[in-house]
Every structure is written in C-alpha cells, then in structure tokens.
C-alpha cells in the first residue's frame, strides 16, 4: 500500500506496467463516478428550471394576448377564443379551503389520539392504516366519489344542509340551489380525506418530538390530557403543525383526478358551495387533449403555470417551516 502515499509519477516508476494501468483505471473510474453523481444532482435542478421554462414558453401566447385580463376574467369560451382563469382559480381555492377546514382539526385530533391516548401496541397499526389512505391512487378516490359518495351526499347531507341553512340570511347563499351531488362541496370533502394522512402523520411526528419532560411536568401539576395537548404540546409544535398544514394544502391545490370526477366542470363562479364548478387541474385534465387552436392550448398551459406558482410558494413555505423545526430539534 506504499504506492498510495507516493506521488503519481513515482508510483509509475516503481511498479510493473500492468499494475500502474490498473491504478490509473481506478483513478479515472473514480473521477467518472464523481462527475456522474454531480451531473445527476444538477439534473434535479435542471428539471425544475425545465418545468418553469417550458410552462412560461407555452403560456406566453395566452399571456401576451389577454395580459392581466387572464387573471381577472371568468369568461371561458373556446368558440370565440376568450379565456380567463378566474373561475378555475376560485374553484381551486374554495375546494382546498373546504378540505383544510375539515382535515386540519380531524388530523390534529387523530395525532392527539396516536400520541397521548392510544395503547402502545395499537399505535403502529393505526398509524400505518391512516398512511395507507395516502397510498390509494387519486383516481380511485375519483371513481369512488362519483359512483358512491356523490349520490350519497345528494340524498342525505346536501338536502339537510339546504333545509337547515335555507332560511338563515347570509348563510342561505352559501347553500343555494338544488342538491346536484357533484360540486365544490363534494370535491372539498374528498380532498379532505386525501389530505388527512399528510396532516396526521406530520402532526404526529412533531407531537412525538415534544420533550417528555414538558408533558410530564404539566401532568404532574394535575393537567388533564386535553390541557396538556392544548397548552403544552400544540404551542411547542406550532411551527411543525403549520408546516404540515401547508404541505397538505400543496397537495389539495394540485390534486387532479379525484376532483375531475366530482367537480362538475362548470366554468362559472357561484356563491353556493353546492354548485358545480371547476379547478385549475380539472380544467387542464378535461380539456387539454381536446383543445384545438394554439390560443386554447396556450391558455391551458398558462393555467398550469399559475397552479405551479401557487403550489411552489405554498410548498416552499411548508419546507422552510419544517426545516427550521428540524434545525431546532437537531441543534
């Protein structure tokens, strides 16, 4: 092994030719592997740059034609080639909001159950079961939502909501119209179930990261389980919970197939959450292959660009918050 510490030239002089050849082959192999790994790492950056560039290039015709109107108009007419993104943006935000309003409290309560109440031997199976919800492909949620969930809502929840809020001033606009079954509420509910595992598993992880000393001290003072969770665990894990919520929100905003099945694909803004609507991703999925004309295609790609920008910001905030938390726990 002496040759390893000698300079390269000396090594060649000392050894037989075959040995030095093998050494130099190892050396080139080493450099090659290193270069390959570096190139692959840079390729990850290139993919992101490629996505942004491709979307901007594709969206350019629509954006230069409609300018800011694209963001503020809700007209969507392929025949006259008038396109505005307001209705899909509105639908995306409303369905995601419904999803988060339901998934966040439920997810936090499940996390509380898993960390504070559940017997130890049950924790792993229940945790895995909840995570399996995240493993079910979104198209399954879609087909299930269309054939099972939407008819069920049409018969039960939606008439009840109309009955209950139909005569309350202010709220009646929110639940106006006939119970279609499909619509923004249905899409929001399905999104809630899809987002639930993300909120739950991150909340559980940050709840578990709370130092036991803090919890034990609170229990020692005679706090109830609820008081410990509310006053000790949640404040300590706040940043992580928000990170988890943002991550779930990123999922909800970009979710395509499940929403496409149950949203109804109607390009209009309605005050009622029972009405059919559309989201950015559902519009693209429904219309892209049938889009004729460059302006139509370009408008759909511009929608994709808007979606990507929104989710990028949400996910970046989520990652930043979770990263900060990781550093605090690690350091």
């Amino acid at each position: 092994m002496i040759e390893m510490v000698l300079p390269a030239g000396a090594a060649v002089a000392l050894e037989s030719p075959s040995r030095s050849r093998r050494l130099s082959r190892l050396r080139t192999g080493d450099a090659l592997f290193r270069a390959l790994a570096r190139a692959a790492a840079l390729a990850v950056l290139a993919v992101l740059a490629g996505v942004i560039l491709a979307l901007v290039a594709g969206a350019l015709p629509a954006l230069t034609t409609f300018r800011l109107d694209f963001l503020t108009s809700q007209r969507w007419n392929p025949v006259t080639e008038q396109f505005g993104a307001l209705a899909p943006i509105y639908g995306t935000l409303v369905t995601s909001l419904i999803a988060m309003v339901i998934a966040v409290p439920v997810g936090l309560l499940i996390a509380m159950f898993l960390t504070e109440l559940c017997p130890l031997w049950l924790r792993r199976p229940i945790g895995i079961a909840v995570e399996l919800l995240a493993g079910i492909p979104s198209i399954i949620y879609g087909i299930w939502g269309l054939f099972v969930f939407a008819p069920f809502l049409q018969r039960t929840l939606q008439p009840a909501l109309i009955q209950l809020f139909g005569h309350v001033p202010g709220l009646n606009a929110l639940f106006a119209g006939p119970p279609y079954g499909i619509g923004m509420l249905t899409a929001g509910l399905i999104l809630a179930v899809m987002v639930l595992p993300f909120v739950t598993s991150i909340s559980r992880d940050v709840f578990e990261a709370v130092p036991p000393v803090l919890k034990e001290a609170a229990y020692g003072l005679g706090c109830t389980t609820w008081e410990v969770v509310r006053n000790v665990v949640v404040p300590y894990a706040r940043v992580g919970i928000i990170g988890g919520i943002m991550l779930g929100l990123g999922r909800a905003l970009g979710e395509t197939m499940a929403v496409t099945f149950v949203i109804g694909n109607a390009h209009r803004i309605s005050g009622s959450i029972l009405a059919p609507g559309t989201t950015i991703s559902a519009t693209i999925a429904n219309e892209f292959t049938e889009a004729v004309g460059d302006l139509y295609t370009s408008s759909l790609i511009a929608l994709g660009l808007i979606l990507f920008v929104i989710t990028f910001i949400v996910l970046a905030v989520a990652r930043y918050l979770l990263l900060r938390l990781e550093r605090r726990i690690g350091g």
Binding site: V47, A54, G58, A285, G304, T311, L315, A316
Partner: peptide, 28 residues
C-alpha cells in the same frame, strides 16, 4: 451549500402537482 439548495428543490418536486409534470413533458 448547493446540496441544501438541491434538497429544498427536490422536496418541492416531491409534492409538485403531477398534472404540471404532464404539461412539462407535453411541451418538451
């Protein structure tokens, strides 16, 4: 430093909407 940048970008790609990936490949 570059690695933490790549990790950040990779985590975002991990949860980026898959329909956007479809649009990207369509374009390129």
């Amino acid at each position: 430093r570059l690695t933490s940048v790549i990790r950040f970008i990779n985590d975002i790609l991990l949860s980026a909407p898959s329909i956007v990936v479809g649009l990207f490949i369509y374009e390129v």
